[in-house]
Amino acid sequence: MDPIQLLIICAQAGMLVNLMLIAAAYMVLAERKVAAWIQGRVGPNRVGPWGLFQSFADVFKLYLKEDVVPAAADYKFHALAPIISIAVAITIYAVIPWSGPLVTIDGHSYGLAMAPQMNVAILIILAMTSVGVYGVALAGWSSNNKYSLMGGLRSAAQMISYELSMGLAVIGVVLISGSLNLVEIINSQIANGWNIMYQPVAFLIFFVTSLAETNRAPFDLPEAEPELVGGYHTEYTGMKFGLLYLAEYASMLAAGAIMATLFLGGWDMIPFVDEAALLGLAPDSIPMVVLGHITFVSKALLMVFVFIWIRWSLPRFRYDQLMNLGWKVLLPLALANIAVTGICLLLFG
C-alpha cells in the first residue's frame, strides 16, 4: 500500500464520515417535519427557508451548552458511552456499498464506499450492531441514576434478544445469494430479482429487529419518557447528549442502507430490467454509477421514512410483550425461514 493510496483512503473516510453526520443531523429535522405533517402541524420553519438550517442551529446550540456531569457519575465511562455509540454507527458505514467505483487512480478504483468488497461485510455489520449495546448500557450505568440504569439494562436485554433473530434473518439472504460480500449480494439481485421477492419473511423479521436494535418506537423502551424520564440519556447534556442523539439517527440510516442492500436490490432501479441497455450506457459508466448511487440512497431514505412513520403511528410495547415477540415469535419464525429456504434451494436451486 503506497502513501498516495493511504492518503486517498483517509480523505475518502473523512468525506464519508462528514457526509453521514450531516445526513444524521438532517434526519432529526426530517423526523420533526414528518411528525408535524402526521399530526397536522407546521413543524420547524423559522431557521432558513422551510426551516432547512434548523439542524445546524440545533448542533450549535448543543455545542454551546454547558456540559454537566452528575457528581456521583463515573466520569470516564460517562464520556466514553457517546463515543462508543457514534463510533459503532460510523464503522457500519465503512462496509455499506453506497456507490460503485467512480474514479480510478493508479489502477485502484474508488467510490463513496470504503470497503464494499470486504468478504465478511455482513458479519462486520452484525458484530458492530451487537457492540452498540455498550454505548447505551454504559451511558445508563455510569450516570448513577436509577432511571438511566433501568434504560441501559432494558436496552441491553432488548438488543441481545433481537440481534439473534436479525442474524438468522440475514442467513436466508446469504443462502440465496451465496455470498457474505455485499457487492456480490447486490449483483445477484440485479441478475435474479430482488431478495424481498424470495425472502419476504426475512425482510419483515429484519425490519422489526432493526427497529428494536436502533431503539425506535414501538421498541423505544430504553428511553420511554413517561416512565424513565429520558432513559439512558437522562443525565447527558450538551454535545455528549448530541452525540447519543446523532448516533441513534446515524444507525437508523445505516439500517435503511443495509435493508436496501440486502433486500431491495441495492443499485438496481427496476427488477428484471437491464437499465444500462435501456438507457444505452455502459453498465459501469459514470452516469450509471451516479444513477445507481441515487437509487441506493433513495431506497435507504425510504426505509428511514417508514421508521419515522411507524414512530408517530404506533404506541410503545409493554416489556413482556417485547420479550415475547422477540423470543416466541421472531426467533422461531427466523429459524423456520432458514429451514424452508434451505429445502427450497435443495429442491429447485
Binding site: 465478511v120 458479519l123 452484525l126 458492530m128 450492531t129 445508563g140 441501559g152 441491553a156 440481534e163
Partner: peptide, 27 residues
C-alpha cells in the same frame, strides 16, 4: 477476516455484553 469478525461478534458482542449486563444488574 472471518475469525476477526467472529471474534468481535461472539466475544465482544455477545459474551461480554452478558458479563457487563450481570455486573450492572448486581451493581
Amino acid at each position: 477476516q472471518f475469525v476477526a469478525a467472529v471474534q468481535v461478534l461472539v466475544y465482544a458482542g455477545a459474551i461480554m455484553v452478558l458479563v457487563v449486563f450481570v455486573i450492572m444488574l448486581l451493581n
